[in-house]
Design a protein around this nucleic acid. Structure first.
Lengths: 332, 332
DNA sequence: CCAATTTCCGTGAGCGCTCACGGTCATTGT
DNA sequence: ACAATGACCGTGAGCGCTCACGGAAATTGG
């Protein structure tokens, strides 16, 4: 109850003009220390809080960024989100969160609705829309940072996880362990990170002149069941395969489950390596060998990039490269 | 580039007044079908998108809610957040996400900053500020829904997980399994859910007339390490304890680890039951016996409650009760 | 065929703030 | 002592939209 305290009220109470109050709270100087204090007192007493919305309308900036992820429930993203939040908070930005559910249509909706302003910039992670759509989008909309996409466009930043190197590390590790028939659970084919990981996988296999049929690379949803089913399918069609490289840890976990349920011992008879190093990878039994990605860093640096972009929306920031690391545990 | 398309542009293009355009896009009827179509065409052609901010200033509603959680990285919260998002999306609301890091000070900051408007309502989960602060907060601010707090105040909704019953279920299960010396990892004592779970724990123990010293209930941060350390401590001071009820699954997992590292077999020599049934509880080995809380439902229904509250901010909605369920796996 | 509705649409004001000016007073230099 | 500089502050307008009016046209009834 009670009307909102406006800047006018403060001005009246302090015996100055609105503009002076505005100057005070945004410490623009151009204001004498004494009036500044007078104003600040009035602010305190009335409990005045400037309206973010009104300010947004006047300045055309809302101090808000939008974070778009496929699904916050996917264990990869909470840490990323956390990184984003922390970076945003440091700069006094708020962050909106949206889930696309891996659906391009849904993603379009969100992006479209984001255009009607609430945000100053967008962080697009795990995008599933195609490159041309993304480019036209980047052209018409505000600063944007994308994950694992190469878009050479002023005003858009890129964060690139080294998927290719990660996949190679994984495969080489498997080869070192003596495996010669290696399969891959490729995840969602539409995803660029899947393409990159498959690329690294193929390259490593070929370099070592190991046999590889296309049917040893099976796509599937990046979920536990996706991993389980992929592994079962491979078990059936390619029983010679003794090791699996999975698109991500969740799929890898599913694969391990499938193996165990089918009576194989991991890692003695079948080995599995995942990707991401999500929190639980070290808790399961056997502990999951995986490629670690610093997820917090991904979020944090992406947000920083976006923040910089918002200062100067026309620059072409260098891509932020995120390195990866092989973490060996018991599943290989 | 290019100025923003305003409602005036549309009005001009369609040969009508701003107000008519406004009516059209908010389908207030009071508008003839023919002009409606004319306006809509103009909207299409110019690619007009009403400014959320300007509308917010005029209507004093931003169509935004704020979700405050201790840490989105805590595996309990992503699912909750997901439920919130989905409910919000259905009503065309955006959601801000904030992390308090279990810090009361940080929470105050956030709540305070939220007062300067960006949100129409607040979802406060895992609050760590004390009851009186919370009440004064509830009085002065906009609609609010809190989790696991009893605040009888018009305009504030409550979502209550049945912690008490959950704790009893857990303890009784342990007793059925033959345990007579049962300890508890109590989590953060400041948290109401901790208090409630401890209450249920005590009640069950007493009802079955089992021995219980206060030192068998050890507090600690709700993390893996918190659980591990608590278990070690108990192992040292109360070696007679054969079963543990943990504040949450993460602590329970830590406890299991501690036991295994100390050479105890779970569940043969030591049993552990958790709380929440987070995603990974069934993936670890041994699978974790736990009290399941439907986290998605918590978020979804909380958001619905908030939405209702925003329609009529002075009502006292009934508390939303969330039931729990004992899930028996291999850790007991 | 004319008053009483109803339907439709336009006008002014205002939401709470900031920006670009311009004005006033005290200060400085010579 | 007088113009010129600078520090400080106030004024109007405007950001893009909606609300509460009120007026004109189209409809109805007897």
């Amino acid at each position: 109850m009670g009307r909102r305290v406006t800047i006018e009220d403060v001005a009246r109470a302090a015996g100055v003009s609105r503009q002076t109050v505005s100057r005070a709270i945004n410490n623009k100087r151009e204001i004498s220390p004494i009036t500044l204090e007078r104003v600040m007192n009035a602010v305190q007493q009335l409990g005045y809080r400037p309206s973010w919305v009104a300010r947004g309308l006047a300045t055309q900036r809302t101090h808000t960024i939008g974070l778009v992820v496929p699904d916050i429930t996917n264990p990869f993203f909470p840490e990323v989100a956390r990184g984003v939040q922390d970076a945003a908070r440091a700069a006094e930005y708020n962050v909106f969160l949206y889930n696309t559910d891996e659906s391009a249509e849904r993603e379009h909706q969100i992006l479209y609705s984001l255009a009607s302003q609430p945000v100053d910039g967008i962080l697009l992670f795990g995008s599933r829309i195609d490159d041309s759509d993304l480019t036209t989008f980047a052209e018409s909309y505000r600063p944007l940072v994308v994950l694992n996409r190469r878009i050479g466009h002023p005003g858009v930043g890129m964060v690139l996880v080294d998927n290719y190197a990660g996949a190679r590390l994984a495969v080489e590790h498997l080869i070192n362990r003596g495996h010669r028939h290696i399969g891959m659970l490729a995840g969602p084919l539409a995803s660029p990170s899947s393409i990159q990981r498959v690329g690294g996988f193929r390259a490593a296999i070929e370099q070592h002149q190991l046999p590889l049929q296309d049917s040893c690379i099976v796509p599937g949803p990046p979920t536990l069941d996706g991993g389980r089913e992929g592994a079962e399918q491979l078990l059936y069609h390619h029983p010679e395969i003794t090791a699996l490289f999975a698109y991500n840890d969740v799929m890898a976990l599913g694969a391990v489950q499938a193996y165990i349920e089918s009576g194989y011992r991991v890692p003695d008879e079948r080995a599995v390596v995942g990707f991401d190093d999500i929190w639980i990878a070290e808790l399961v039994h056997p502990g999951l060998t995986t490629i670690r990605v610093n997820k917090y860093e991904v979020g944090y640096r992406a947000a920083q990039c976006l923040l910089a972009l918002m200062e100067d929306p026309m620059q072409c920031p260098p891509a932020v490269e995120i390195g990866v690391e092989l973490i060996i545990r018991e599943s290989t």
